[in-house]
Simulated scan of single mutants.
Amino acid sequence: MTTTPIAPVPATTPPRSRNGPRALLVSLGTLLILTGVVLLAIGGTAAWANQQRDDDGYFRAGPERVSTETSAVSVPLLELSGAGPDDLYAGDFLGDVRIQLESRNTGVPLFVGIGPAAEVAKYLVGFGHDEVSDIAVDPFEVVTTTRPGGRPAAAPATQSFWVASDTGTGARTLGWNATEGDWAVVIMNADGSPAVDVDVSVGGKLPAIRGIAVGALIGSALLLTIGTAVMISALGLSRR
């Protein structure tokens, strides 16, 4: 009896699925494009904001009338600090700060000063003043809280702790290059008398705005280009 050998069945390799790599590319491309769109919006907003400076290069808010029956108006604490690249430090972000004011009481000399918050707080102890509790920028509005007390024993210009100050009649301008620290701002009649009534505007150069705009727009262009290339690769893989 003769038996015919049975030929072995050749092993077959199952077709490789491209769904996994394609889905990964689609997800990556979508993430890159969405991030690029967000950066584009940030860069566009920063570029628009950078055009809103006045003739001196400041972003300006005001003027706003600030008045009190006490002897001073103060911003008790400005915390300027930063952690990260140099361009994000408080001083680099704010740049030059400008405070402009003019008394509504004709001929009354004004004083405006910026000093360390702790030293200013010691000076203000015991005499009546209004503390700024909130500031809105658009529209510019100042909200104050009154601290009762008497009249200061010494005129503000006689104090030695001010890092920047200005005093005199008429329109006054105080310029200051913002540096890291805890600061306070005080506006008074120069002789410390009560009834302060002024028009105030504030401004800052904010040099970091230009850098934010340029960086965000460049990053957006790169991410959108890479994201589009990844999506095209995913489409090509799908067709194959």
Rank of each mutant, 00 (worst) to 15 (best):
66 V>L: 10
101 L>H: 05
92 D>R: 15
224 L>T: 11
234 A>N: 10
108 V>H: 03
68 T>E: 10
150 G>P: 04
137 V>T: 11
193 S>M: 09
98 R>S: 12
231 M>W: 06
13 T>K: 12
177 N>A: 12
146 T>W: 01
37 V>E: 03
214 V>H: 03
158 T>S: 15
138 D>I: 09
60 R>M: 15
55 D>C: 00
141 E>Y: 10
30 T>W: 04
194 P>H: 10
118 A>H: 08
61 A>G: 03
201 S>G: 06
166 D>M: 09
66 V>E: 03
38 V>Y: 08
27 S>C: 05
186 V>K: 13
110 L>Y: 02
102 E>N: 04
16 R>G: 07
40 L>S: 14
183 W>Y: 11
82 G>S: 01
20 G>Q: 12
29 G>A: 12
194 P>W: 09
10 P>K: 13
177 N>R: 15
14 P>D: 04
128 G>S: 08
201 S>E: 15
47 A>S: 14
180 E>L: 10
166 D>G: 05
153 A>N: 09
106 T>G: 03
152 P>L: 12
154 A>E: 14
72 A>N: 08
77 L>A: 12
8 P>S: 11
46 A>G: 07
74 S>W: 02
129 H>V: 04
1 M>F: 02
144 T>W: 02
93 F>A: 15
143 V>D: 13
61 A>E: 11
195 A>G: 00
8 P>E: 15
204 G>P: 01
12 T>P: 00
87 D>N: 07
135 I>M: 05
101 L>M: 15
98 R>C: 05
34 L>F: 12
65 R>D: 06
235 L>H: 02
153 A>D: 15
144 T>K: 13
239 R>Q: 02
183 W>I: 09
189 N>P: 04
36 G>H: 07
67 S>F: 04
112 V>Y: 01
44 G>E: 05
177 N>I: 04
88 L>I: 15
10 P>Q: 09
34 L>P: 00
206 L>K: 12
120 V>W: 11
5 P>D: 03
63 P>S: 14
25 L>S: 08
228 T>S: 14
146 T>V: 13
184 A>C: 09
149 G>W: 07
114 I>Q: 11
178 A>R: 12
75 V>Q: 08
64 E>R: 08
192 G>H: 03
167 T>H: 11
9 V>T: 15
58 Y>W: 03
121 A>W: 11
130 D>V: 09
